[in-house]
Write a protein that binds this DNA or RNA. Structure first.
Lengths: 155, 155
DNA sequence: ATGGCTGCAAACCGTTTGCAACTAT
DNA sequence: ATAGTTGCAAACGGTTTGCAGCCAT
């Protein structure tokens, strides 16, 4: 189990060293921008941010670097519905997602009862659980969403 | 709530009629093939089967027809990991999926405690749940998978 | 100097769409 | 007759990849 208290700088450096890979200016910039974001950026959003810091960085490099982060365990990839892949730092505890089908707001939650049940369910079917995804879709209580729903209901 | 005891023939016909749409030879063939499958076919697999029955049916029609089934509530779409969309008949009770990361085997399960917890979690965050997806990934106990894992563990 | 890394553009793959011909109503 | 439907092929959007040059080691 990785030491979650280490900073991503050290963890990334260590991973690169282990694998004989190299720390580059691009990887530094992408990592700095990525780990500064609290949220679930997709590649386009990340690309925009990265390019504000260094416009010369190509989209392909951002794709390749995020894949590197996922492989190294520094980031997690999620897919919500049909949309593009979204990423988040893995330096926090595991959690699942709640998504508003109206405004796209993403809320994180964690429920230990469900986590434990998942293990149990997997085991009862002869599976050794390695991972899981859980996304709940619904209408959130943001004023704009409630209003939109009310006016649609009237039609 | 739709009457689950009606056959898909009637439900489809009713939906088409409601929406002013038409029953065509292609839709009949695709529906017959789709509802005869127990499993989670993707478009390619379905297409292959449909074309065995009628080689003149185009892939686009299969895509459009499955979308129709989903819109009508006759089918559910799922996405597992990165792969293509998979479909299954909605004429059975809701369930979630357990997928073997080694062989791709898909096992269905249902757990009412989790279902109820999901509602509660959504509500506690001010969401009105409309849907949810839950996929557990793991290593299954099929002999081939156990063997593969054992030999990989030795490396 | 070596071999990993980069940006670019082209390829890829699942899916959607424009179109002219066709067909269920 | 009307308007929905079809097959085809082209377009699409997100992602990956081949390549020639670049740069960290």
């Amino acid at each position: 189990m990785p030491d979650e208290t280490e900073h991503w700088e050290d963890r990334l450096e260590q991973y690169l060293h282990e694998k004989g890979l190299r720390m580059t200016r691009q990887r530094q910039v992408i990592a700095r921008e990525f780990f500064a974001i609290t949220g679930h950026p997709n590649i386009d959003e990340l690309c925009a941010r990265v390019r504000r810091a260094d416009p010369s960085i190509g989209q392909a490099t951002v794709y390749r670097t995020l894949k590197l982060f996922v492989d190294s365990g520094l980031a997690n990839q999620s897919r919500f519905g049909d949309g593009p892949a979204r990423y988040e730092s893995a330096d926090v505890d595991h959690h699942d997602h709640l998504i508003c089908v109206d405004c796209g707001r993403i809320v994180e939650f964690r429920n230990d009862t469900i986590e434990k049940l998942q293990e149990k369910i997997a085991a009862s079917h002869g599976f050794e659980m390695t991972d899981h995804e859980m996304v709940i879709y619904g209408h959130c209580d943001a004023p704009a969403c409630v209003a939109r729903r009310a006016s649609r209901g009237r039609d």
